[in-house]
Amino acid sequence: MARTQAKVKRGDVARTVGLRGRVGRPPKALAGNIEERILDAAREVFLERGFDGTSIDEIAERAPASKPTIYARYAGKPALFAAIVERSIGELTALRSTYTPPAGTVQEKLAGLATAIVDRAMKESIGLLRVTIGEAYRFPDLSCQFHEVSRKRTTQVVAGLLADTIGSAAPKRPPSKTYEAAAEIFIDLIVLPLLMRALMGMKERTIRKEMPGFVRERVKIFLALHAKL
Rank of each mutant, 00 (worst) to 15 (best):
A42G: 08
L128T: 07
E210A: 01
L192M: 10
P64C: 04
S88L: 07
R151C: 02
P212H: 01
E36M: 06
S97N: 05
A14T: 06
R218N: 15
V191A: 01
K172W: 04
T115A: 12
G32H: 05
A183E: 02
S150F: 08
K177T: 03
T100Q: 11
R120P: 03
R151F: 06
E44P: 04
G18T: 12
A2L: 10
M211A: 14
T105S: 15
A42C: 04
I84V: 15
D57K: 12
S88V: 05
A136V: 04
E204H: 08
A116D: 05
Y71L: 14
M196R: 11
A183I: 06
A224Q: 15
A183Q: 08
T178F: 02
R208H: 11
F139N: 05
R73W: 08
G21C: 07
R96M: 03
E217K: 15
R43S: 13
T155M: 02
L194E: 14
F81R: 14
G213D: 12
M202Q: 11
G32L: 02
G201K: 02
R3P: 03
L199T: 01
S168K: 01
E48A: 15
M202V: 08
T155H: 01
L223Q: 15
S125D: 02
P193W: 09
A60K: 03
P27E: 05
R3N: 12
T154S: 10
L194R: 09
R208F: 03
T165A: 00
F186W: 03
K28Q: 09
V157Q: 01
V149M: 11
V17T: 11
Q145L: 11
L129T: 09
E135V: 15
R197G: 02
E108V: 07
S143V: 04
R87C: 03
S125Y: 01
S176A: 10
D57H: 10
Q145H: 08
K7D: 03
G167D: 06
G201Y: 06
A79R: 13
A121C: 10
D164Y: 03
G18V: 04
K228M: 03
L39I: 13
A82C: 09
G160K: 02
G160S: 07
T98N: 05
K152I: 00
E184R: 13
A41G: 06
G32A: 01
R130G: 04
P78R: 13
K77I: 09
E180A: 02
R43A: 15
Y71N: 11
R205L: 08
A227T: 08
L39G: 06
A75D: 15
K28C: 00
P26R: 06
I185E: 06
Y71P: 07
R173E: 06
V23D: 01
A72N: 15
I133Q: 14
A65Y: 08
K67M: 10
G50P: 12
I38R: 08
E91F: 09
E135L: 08
R3I: 00
P212L: 06
G213K: 10
